[in-house]
């Protein structure tokens, strides 16, 4: 059992090397992949957009997990310590962003709001990604019947405009916290991802090295783990990064409408929703949470874009 496999690898290493130059469009050659990855990584490290957006995302993740590290910078780190005397006042010494309508320090609140937004973004994207990988691989590898059943199911969920579907479901749910909002957003977020995964699996399945592995008797599970998943990693990373961004925006929109997060929680969506009534008199209430939210989404999209550019041979 091990002998033929070893022989396969030995043969696979030499054979594509000889006929690779004519067909340079296919990423089939196993020995070329590490090289391509290395050069892409070098390209990425030199890209300002990648470094800056990646750094911003890292900072935001730390802020989401440990808000206390950032919140106390100006001496008023507790988002729940409020004084109504300061209601909606503008920036003051020790309070760079001013106060919200309850008289709480806005800076501490904005820092603590990262958790809910990033949490929902990552949770919803993670769930839809898991579902999309499962369904996409099934659909790409299994027979026509499974494929068309999954395709029709995808069509049905694509029939919902993202926001409207979420409004319908969330308005009939009474308690809305991070898991429920993330769950509903995942419910309407998986179909486009599934399409991308399916298309990538299909193209990977036709690649020379996969056909060869299969003809050597490799099982479907082994092929998926060893060849298909690494192959589709890039489009999936790009899509996931952009999806986290759109989920963060969607959460804010739903909360603004009144069907997202609920009051005792701290989230950018909630801060923006409460700011809407007094925006004209107190623009800072909308400005700072809006700025943080927009920068987060901007970083996520720019990150996805820069990875795609670096790995797409046509735009290099």
């Amino acid at each position: 059992m091990t002998e033929p496999t070893g022989a396969t690898r030995g043969g696979g290493g030499t054979a594509p090397a000889s006929d690779d130059p004519p067909s340079d469009t296919s990423p089939a050659d196993a020995s070329a992949v590490p090289f391509a990855e290395r050069s892409a990584w070098q390209l990425l490290r030199r890209s300002t957009v990648f470094v800056v957006s990646g750094g911003a995302i890292a900072v935001l993740l730390v802020m989401a997990v440990r808000p206390a590290l950032f919140a106390g910078w100006f001496g008023h780190g507790d988002p729940r310590s409020c004084n109504l005397d300061h209601s909606a006042q503008g920036p003051a010494p020790g309070h760079p962003f001013g106060f919200d309508t309850q008289g709480c320090d806005l800076y501490a609140n904005v820092v603590h709001g990262a958790g809910a937004s990033m949490g929902i973004g990552l949770l919803a994207t993670g769930c839809s990604l898991a579902l999309a990988l499962l369904l996409g691989c099934l659909s790409g590898m299994a027979g026509r019947v499974v494929d068309s059943v999954i395709a029709r199911l995808t069509d049905v969920f694509l029939g919902f405009p993202f926001l409207l579907g979420a409004i319908v479901v969330l308005s009939s749910v009474t308690t809305r916290d991070i898991p429920t909002v993330a769950g509903v957003l995942a419910l309407f977020g998986w179909p486009p991802m599934t399409r991308v995964v399916r298309a990538s699996v299909r193209s990977a399945r036709e690649a020379d090295h996969v056909v060869m592995a299969r003809s050597m008797g490799a099982g479907t599970g082994w092929v998926v783990r060893r060849h298909i998943l690494p192959h589709i990693l890039t489009p999936v990373i790009v899509l996931a990064s952009i999806t986290v961004g759109s989920v963060v925006v969607a959460e804010a929109g739903l909360t603004f409408l009144g069907v997202g997060m609920q009051a005792p929680a701290i989230s950018w969506g909630l801060q923006l929703a409460t700011a809407q009534n007094s925006f004209e008199a107190h623009p800072h209430l909308l400005l700072f949470p809006g700025l943080f939210l927009s920068l987060t989404v901007f970083a996520l999209i720019a990150f996805g874009d820069s990875v795609r550019d670096a790995l797409n041979p046509r735009t290099r």
């Binding site: 961004g245 925006v249 804010a252 929109g253 923006l272 925006f279 927009s294 901007f298 999209i301």
Partner: peptide, 15 residues
């Protein structure tokens, strides 16, 4: 264009 996609529509609207 990236910025236009990043700002939530209601923030853009109010502004």
């Amino acid at each position: 264009t990236t910025a236009a996609v990043s700002v939530p529509v209601f923030v853009l609207g109010y502004t």
